[in-house]
Design a protein around this nucleic acid. Structure first.
Length: 572
RNA sequence: CGGAGCGUAGCGCAGCCUGGUAGCGCGUUUGGUUCGGGACCAAAAGGUCGAGGGUUCAACUCCCUCCGCUCCGACCA
């Protein structure tokens, strides 16, 4: 491809719309253009890179034995009623009506459609296991689209679904997908690592997310360098270190006018935040409950939701809090509370702490939790912090940020039950299929590659996903001799199956160098009158400063060697 | 949805506080000089100043409403 014929404009300045480096670079390098918030056009160069990611995904899915299908993005909402997710996932779905007033949805994911499909297709154990996948545009009415392709309203996802005869068989399918994911991200040149994750609205028992480490990542990751334990902060556990507080006198009420927050209280009492017990009133499926965490910790709502096994969990409104505690917001405490009370494990054995008194402008000191309050259960309820230790080995852990590029779930029979997706066993009995689901954000993965691989000058593409392997800079487009060398080289490379992008614009050399760095193809080849006079064409890797000068007639072979070396380095 | 900020030429921005009929840089077009790390000179095209309403002799500027975009929180590939 020649630049002069390509719809490509690079930008000198960072776009005002972009915040993180990968987004800025994608716009500057002319890979994407914004239509509106969370909606992007892939320009020719960006689409090439996207196709390369898709191809890797497809190859590895096929290798893992999954079969490609393509399901409709437009789906009847009735399907979602059957699984019960119209309620839980409802607000995140784009809904519309057809001319018969039937409620439809633009698919945010396809568990319903695929389960309905397999329920009809599979009738015998002989047809199992079966894993299908598709690479398709998904629609989600995100509350806040962000960071370009990272969180978009419309994005391309590879979603796969496995169906098995048993939990054990499903584990095998899960592992096959897990292994495929490791290969996919490795081939994309990404440093992605699997972490234990929360299952969220998708449901199911167990899941792993594949995280690309990046400071701009939206997720917190907890990582134990000693034993390899790694988890999303939403799910991460910590070693159980119960409080070992000495006995204390009975609770005493202290007037604390206007002191509602932990900050207010530490100032008022002049002690550290951990000496307080934070009491949070939640509505769990509409019923009030209290959750207790040490004053210096944040409650992890995912953990609480899992413990309570409820669908909806939200902080209670002011009116509910006043009704339940008898006090305005900010003075709730566990002593004398008539609703279920769940406390973080670190509060087991807690004594001589300060809590709200369930009375306006009043707190209780000398509270010994077990002695003075009725705790329904102790469990791990806080967001893991920097000082927590590993739940497996007790060693210190690290907190990092990550971009979630893939997620694999063991779903069990959650969906096959809703859709009565069953098969006949070899004994002629009807059993529900056991399911797994597996997603990769293809567009997000592409951007994650850039987020992880760039420098001050621009993108540094791994060869596997680069729009072109080679940037060929024609420095003297008016010099027939130079043009002849470029033409011959372009053809020679094409004959070897190497994609070349020729910058044949009538621009000064500096402009071409800058743009080549910005666009970031892994191999840069410069052909100019000066260079030819000095011995040939110049070959340079995007990752290196070294320039090799090679006679024109040997250039194609030399480049092919570089391509082979770069490709081999990424192959698993 | 709650909080914060921003909408002026294709892109990046100034002007607004203190109303007087819109400017800079990049890019684009034409001509010339240049030509190995974002050249220079000259000329030119390009703007309903996000939209609507109000105040005023006069609104990019002040006021109100709405819309859009970006960032921080809940959602998630």
């Amino acid at each position: 491809m020649r630049w002069s014929r390509l719809l490509l404009t690079t930008l000198r300045d960072d776009p005002q719309e972009a915040e993180i480096v990968s987004h800025k670079l994608m716009v500057r390098a002319g890979l994407i253009r914004k239509l509106s918030g969370g909606l992007y056009t892939f320009m020719p160069l960006g689409l090439r890179a996207l196709h390369k990611v898709s191809r890797i995904v497809r190859e590895e899915m096929d290798r893992a034995g999954a079969q490609e299908v393509l399901m409709p993005a437009l789906q009847p909402a009735e399907l979602w009623e059957r699984s019960g997710r119209l309620a839980t996932m409802g607000p995140g779905m784009f809904r519309l009506k057809d001319r018969a007033e039937r409620l439809m949805a633009l698919g945010p994911t396809h568990e319903e459609v695929v389960t309905e499909l397999l329920a009809g297709e599979v009738s015998s154990y002989r047809q199992l296991p079966c894993t299908v996948y598709q690479i398709q545009t998904k629609f989600r009415d995100e509350i806040r689209p962000r960071f370009g392709l990272m969180r978009a309203k419309e994005f391309i996802m590879k979603d796969a679904y496995s169906f098995d005869t048993s939990l054990e068989a499903a584990d095998v399918s899960y592992q096959a997908m897990f292994d495929a994911y490791v290969r996919i991200f490795r081939r994309c040149g990404l440093d992605a690592r699997p972490v234990e994750a929360d299952t969220g609205d998708i449901g199911g028992k167990w899941s792993h997310e594949f995280m690309v480490l990046a400071d701009s990542g939206e997720d917190g990751i907890v990582d134990c360098p000693a034993c390899g334990y790694a988890a999303n902060q939403e799910r991460a556990e910590r070693a159980d270190v119960p409080a070992a507080d000495p006995e204390c006198p009975p609770p005493a009420a202290v007037a604390t006018p206007g002191a509602r927050t932990i900050d207010d209280l530490t100032a008022f009492f002049g002690c550290t935040a951990e000496r307080f017990i934070k009491t949070l009133i939640y509505l769990a499926d509409g019923k009030p409950i209290a959750a207790l965490v040490p004053g210096d910790r944040d409650l992890n709502e995912h953990k609480l939701k899992r413990l309570l096994n409820v669908k909806q969990l939200a902080l209670a409104d002011e009116a509910t809090i006043e009704k339940v505690t008898g006090a305005p917001v900010g003075f709730a405490g566990p002593v004398g509370l008539a609703i279920p009370v769940y406390a973080d494990r670190a509060l087991r054995g807690a004594a001589d702490r300060t809590t709200g008194a369930n009375k306006a402008d009043t707190h209780l000191t000398h509270v010994a939790l077990a002695r003075d309050a009725a705790v329904t259960a102790f469990d791990d309820l806080v967001v893991v912090g920097p000082n927590d230790t590993c739940p497996r080995c007790g060693k210190p852990m690290q907190l990092k940020r990550g971009i979630e590029v893939g997620h694999v779930f063991k779903l069990g029979t959650k969906y096959t039950e809703s859709f009565q997706a069953s098969y006949l066993t070899d004994k002629g009995q009807s059993e529900l299929m056991v399911m797994g689901c597996y997603g990769i954000g293809v567009t997000r993965t592409l951007q994650a590659v850039i987020e992880q691989s760039h420098d001050a000058d621009g993108i540094v593409w791994p060869i596997s996903v680069a729009p072109y392997a080679v940037s060929l800079l024609l420095l003297d487009p008016k010099d027939p001799a130079v043009c002849a060398v470029v033409d011959a080289l372009e053809q020679a490379l094409a004959a070897r199956g190497i994609d070349v992008f020729v910058d044949d614009r009538e621009e000064r050399p500096g402009v071409k160098f800058k743009d080549a760095d910005l666009i970031g193809c892994p191999i840069r080849v410069v052909v100019g009158a000066k260079g030819l006079a000095k011995g040939g064409v110049e070959i340079k890797l995007r990752t290196s400063k070294e320039v090799a000068v090679v006679p024109a007639e040997r250039a194609a072979d030399a480049i092919a060697e570089q391509v082979a070396a770069l490709t081999a380095a990424l192959d698993t």
